[in-house]
Every structure is written in C-alpha cells, then in structure tokens.
Amino acid sequence: MKVSLVSLTIALAGTLALAGCGPTNGANIPGAGSTPTYQQMELLARPAVKEAMEQFVNHDATNRSSPYADPVLQGEILNFMTNVAGRSAGISNAVQGVLYPNEITVDLSQTGTAAYLGTETGGATAAFIPGSVNGKFGGRGLVDDVITIDLAAIFGNAIPSIITSIPDDHKENFCLTAQHVTLNQGGTQSQAAFPYVAAPH
C-alpha cells in the first residue's frame, strides 16, 4: 500500500508542477489550419469495448488508430467472445458486427432520450435504461447502464432475442448479466440544467 500512496503522491506532485509553469494568459491559441500537426495518442468511443475485450498490450495500437481502420480491435472482439466468453460463432460475429467500428452511433432524426446502442439495435437497448423514451436516438446518456448492456450481450440472451435469426447457444451465464449498481446515487451522475454533469465532489 505504501507503494500505491507513493504513486499517487508522485502523480499529484507532477500535476501541480505542470500547473505551475508556462504562460498564464490567453496567448498561444492556435489558428485555423495552423501547423504543426497533432498526432493522435488516445481514442475513446463506446465505453469499455477496448478495455474489456482487448488485451492490454494492444491498447496503444487502438489509441493511435482511427476506429474504422483499427488493426487489432476487430479480431480481439471476436476472440474475446469466442474464446473467453465461450459464445457461439453466430453470437460472437453479431457482437463484433455491432461494436466495430467502435463509434457511438446517433440518429439525429429521432426524438426521445438517448439509449446506448439504441440506433444499432432498433431501440432494443431502451429496455435496459429506466425512463428511456423511444431509444432509437442511440448515443449515450449520463445514466445509461452501459456495463449491464454489455454484459447482457456478452453473457446473456440479448443477441438472440434482438436478432432472431441467430440461435440461442445455451452458453449464457445469468450470474453475469447485470452489475446491479443503483443509478444516479445522490444525483451525482446527471442534473437537469446545463452543463448536465453534476458539480464536482
């Protein structure tokens, strides 16, 4: 535990050191088309796809790729579903098909609330989101239980129930299909007024 505390202390000290140097006014705002070129070092879209399904060693490759041209994630999703979760080829391929490219899909023509993976599933994921309306807008709301939706697809019956042409493989593990976390505890996830994210602790 000492080592852990040291790590945090070093991290915080580094942060404070960074905050204490450099210009202190509004100068140096880059202009349009200005050089130099910025090189991508981090990418995030759908929550927990990279983190749950991809080996840690491959995160950097995904972070430095465009999601439509990721050299490793597509294979990692299929490998995870088939060899780790132990699901059928049909279900594994369906999950891979939905999650790649790893981008948050939003249908701006739809009304109602956000629903994670709602556009891709014709609104089916709204069933996992209390208070959701329509669900076909997709996107991701602040209180969408994205982990439970992922677990339902990975370990549950979600895929065969949504895509009826894919047969149930009878390899569900119902113990793992929800995380049972209470939403919006103390209003810490969302608020009604802009900027919608709750004030800091």
Binding site: T37, Y38, Q39, Q40, M41, E42, L43, L108
Partner: peptide, 21 residues
Amino acid sequence: LTTGFSSQIIHVWATTSTTTG
C-alpha cells in the same frame, strides 16, 4: 451537424493529440 449531409445518422469518437504523440 445535419445541414449539407444526406444522412442524419452520425458516428462519434473522441481523440486527444499532441504535436509529438
């Protein structure tokens, strides 16, 4: 986000970048 585009379905991802990567 929609004016000038034939599709109202958008796909979004976030990145961070520096001049050195």
